[in-house]
């Protein structure tokens, strides 16, 4: 580095950086930081309508957590959330990766058409997507039901949500449909960034296509898969709106996932302490699963500058 380096605001005594981050930090601390702190204290309190009015909480120690861990419903909901998340993450990554690899072998016109469709779907707001799927699977006028009937089955009019398996399939369908574009396009972008010289060099050295994939392509793709899988877990684990809106703002208890369960306990039953305890357990499970990803991202941010 040249002598100019000295002029860079690099000294630790410098107050500039702090001045620059203070306004942003203040907003984040108030609206996100404080609620995190409050979530923790809340989970150790009994906090209902009485406490909201009086403003005086009753401390109950670990009672909320004990009650939860003893409640079979909590374990059912937790297991359901894990299975549902796993199914959605697996489906979106597998389909996304499959499409991305296929895109390399499509002709230009078809690739362009698919790419344009994917971008269009990517751009559709979540709530609009949910409304469309709700319409496609509606009770009386469903295009899906009538198409199935035309193929010779007899479903008549059908409420797809009375059966939780088909219900969750549709909810998962909305989520996966919305997630595929981002995953496909990211993997495809990464694939096209694999340097040609590397592939040619490997081919000249006599590597077959499987070896090339294992030792040239995979190492480049692996970090991207890690990011995409981590992000998918983070997003799919907390799916709320899809379930909530598809089930008309009042999902039956067979449809509770951790997010809905915490929400119902808090806003439905006004047991905010209990809801906070569920939410906290939810955050811990999520942090546990994505720890590796966080560490990696912090490294990237810190190495720079």
């Amino acid at each position: 580095m040249s002598s100019a380096t000295k002029l860079r605001p690099g000294s630790k005594k410098n107050f500039w950086p702090y001045l620059l981050i203070t306004p942003a930090l203040a907003v984040i601390l108030l609206i996100l930081g404080f609620p995190v702190f409050r979530l923790i204290t809340l989970s150790f309190q009994q906090f209902g309508l009485t406490e909201i009015v009086s403003g005086i909480p009753t401390w109950v120690g670990f009672e909320n957590f004990q009650a939860l861990l003893k409640d079979p419903e909590f374990w059912t909901v937790l297991r359901r959330t894990f299975i549902f998340t796993f199914a959605m993450v697996a489906a979106s990554i597998v389909i996304g990766a499959w499409l991305a690899h296929l895109m390399l072998r499509m002709n230009t016109v078809i690739r362009w058409l698919l790419n344009t469709t994917l971008i269009l779907v990517w751009a559709i707001p979540a709530l609009v997507g949910i409304s469309i799927w709700k319409w496609m699977f509606s009770f009386e006028f469903s295009i899906i039901t009538s198409t199935i009937n035309r193929l010779g089955f007899d479903f008549a009019q059908r409420n797809w949500f009375t059966n939780t398996f088909s219900g969750f399939s549709i909810i998962g369908g909305v989520v996966v449909w919305g997630a595929i574009p981002f995953i496909t396009i990211s993997i495809y972008a990464a694939l096209t960034q694999v340097p040609k010289e590397l592939l040619e060099a490997a081919a000249i050295d006599g590597a077959n296509s499987r070896q090339i994939f294992r030792s040239v392509i995979l190492p480049i793709l692996l970090p991207i898969y890690v990011i995409l899988i981590s992000l998918s877990i983070i997003w799919d684990f907390q799916v709320f709106t899809q379930i909530w809106v598809l089930l008309d703002n009042r999902p039956a208890s067979e449809y509770y996932t951790m997010a809905i369960y915490a929400f119902e306990k808090s806003f439905g039953l006004s047991e905010y302490g209990m809801g906070a305890a569920i939410a906290l357990l939810m955050i811990f499970s999520l942090l546990g699963v994505t720890w590796f990803y966080i560490k990696k991202m912090v490294q990237i941010g810190d190495n720079n500058a």
Binding site: F34, V36, I234, F267, Y272, I294
Partner: peptide
């Protein structure tokens, strides 16, 4: 600061909304 920025983005909205609403 960077860690906080990243972790905060991962907090489930449906979890934070409880204390946020009270605040």
């Amino acid at each position: 600061f960077i860690s906080a920025l990243l972790i905060v983005q991962m907090l489930p909205l449906s979890a934070l909304i409880i204390p946020l609403f009270l605040l």
